[in-house]
Design a protein around this nucleic acid. Structure first.
Lengths: 188, 188, 188, 188
DNA sequence: TATGAATGAGCGTTCATTCAT
DNA sequence: AATGAATGAACGCTCATTCAT
């Protein structure tokens, strides 16, 4: 039922989704949802926190592996797509609604996650610049945003049941971001 | 006043924005807005169509210049960031709401634009693959989505009044997407 | 301009008529009407009181002529249709809105007129019953309503500029009401 | 609850009636009405279509009886007053609002009914003229309007719970319209 | 005289939520 | 567990009215 709610939120947007719509799809009446959930907000809460918990569990494994910057980079992107496969609707909701929701105390963990995310990526990029894996003239704050958006925005069109698996997409993304789409790029 | 509405839409989302909020910010009462606009929807309409008109005017100049694929690519990205500078809130609205709005007849031009956009980019990428500017093994549909999202999603955090100009950001983006962020990339 | 207002009120109904519509038809903006009138209500007021003044002037001439009941009857019906010719929109408004408006102090004269009207007709009918002009078993209160409605409701479809003049219609109505539409009626 | 709405519509007019007034009278809040009805308009719809359905069921019985013109006339008037007894508020609404509502597709059946009504009465009057039951010089279109309005407008003052039953009023109306209110009428 | 811009009350409607059953 | 009926706050919008120009 939470899965149903997540799909509807992802499809229509949180605000545009009525509890009636969720209830319809779950085969019950709007009032009946309240036996299972405190509120519409708490549905979003459960959906998002389940996703972020899984995501950080995955990320932690990578951090603990203490790989080089490029391998960490690849690991993080791959893990992100893997989670997108499991939690696609949650990712879409996160993408669209996190900013708005984060202003509420109850969704504080969204901002916290955002911050951890930024630190993790920034550290990885900086390590890469330091050890020569990444370009020396890389503007890390801009590159961070670039990578972050680039990965997550894919959730909007990515369909795990489509022709390409998460791993394939991840591989393509990694290659594009790391090596670019042009030929003969000059090392800088 | 349209600018005010655009900012609020971008900040809170179209659905979450009430006409009272817009009116507050514009220093008037909700009813007064209706002297200037037919409806909330028509505000979004004017905002989005003004943006898309300007955008396509810019793109057309680039198309007509008949540049090589790489230069066209750079031109399109640069033009996109330039328009983002003028129409930042409109871009955010487009980003978040286009899918939902496009289902209405009045916003048909959103889908039309989307399609033109896809053709323009796809053609450019294919030309680049054909003439060797871009990697031969490039998955064009995936790369198209990658570039499209990557550029526009920047509107969410991009602030023209920030430290970096649109041209600077565009240059960094182009370089990241074309040449990658890693060093010594292998040509494929 | 009052004529314009009257036409619109008659056509659309008082409530459904906006001052904007009246202003449009008068070739000005809504606000400009207020240079000429205190309020929408006062327009209705002027329209209705002008009509009733004329009507009672006409009726008074008939009363003063001291005719027999049948001739009085004919005179009142004819005068009513004559006024309908001059004040058609006002009659329609009266017909549709009098009941609602009459509850307001400012429209007290509507109820007053209604009452005078009832007395005038009732007296005429009773005189006719007394002197044998009208049927002895006539239920005067019911007949009063019958005649009253019968005459005024015609304003809704009556068009002075149509094929039939007010005098012709009045003649037909009088004959129908007095003598009936059937043949060989039995005197009672 | 539909009955409550009908009474308020009849009393105040459709436009002047607010859903809050209806809700007040029904002992609930405005929003609660929408659990039972789609819209204010659909309330009017249900009220009017229920009335017209009953009315035409009654009329059909009379048509199928294949009576003479005078008996058909009496039957139709009597049936009309009978329906007025059951659907008085609906009749008032019909009387006042049909013209305005009929312009909407959803109320198309109002115009349809109007037309059937006209045909039915016109046919009856013409049959009466043809077989000598009604006056040979009768202006059928005018007489039709006369009868139509005369009957239905009674709904405004008619109270079934008053001193007179629908059947009594119908009998008086029939006699007035067929035979007139004057004595010694000349057959024409 | 007329305009343009605004006001503010109120309208029909929606929707998350409650609660007795 | 679920329903059916209701609540009440808020929403987009309308409109009679005001008023400086």
């Amino acid at each position: 039922m939470l899965a149903t709610a997540a799909e509807v939120f992802a499809e229509l947007g949180y605000n545009a989704t009525t509890v009636r719509t969720i209830a319809d799809r779950a085969g019950m009446l709007a009032g009946s949802l309240y036996y299972h959930f405190d509120s519409k907000e708490s549905m979003a809460d459960e959906i998002l926190s389940a996703f972020l918990t899984d995501l950080w569990t995955g990320y932690q494994r990578i951090e603990e592996a203490e790989l080089g910057p490029r391998e960490t980079f690849e690991g993080l992107v791959t893990e992100s797509f893997r989670q997108m496969e499991r939690h696609r609707p949650a990712v879409v909701i996160y993408q669209k609604e996190a900013r708005r929701l984060a202003s509420q105390e109850r969704f504080r963990y969204l901002s916290d996650s955002q911050e951890r995310f930024q630190q993790l990526w920034t550290r990885t990029l900086e390590r890469g610049v330091a050890d020569g894996s990444f370009r020396s003239r890389l503007d890390v704050p801009v590159a961070y945003r670039f990578v972050r958006d680039t990965v997550w925005v894919a959730a909007v069109w990515f369909r795990p049941w489509g022709r390409k698996s998460a791993a394939e997409i991840a591989e393509q993304y990694t290659s594009m971001v790391l090596d670019g789409i042009a030929t003969h790029p000059v090392a800088r």
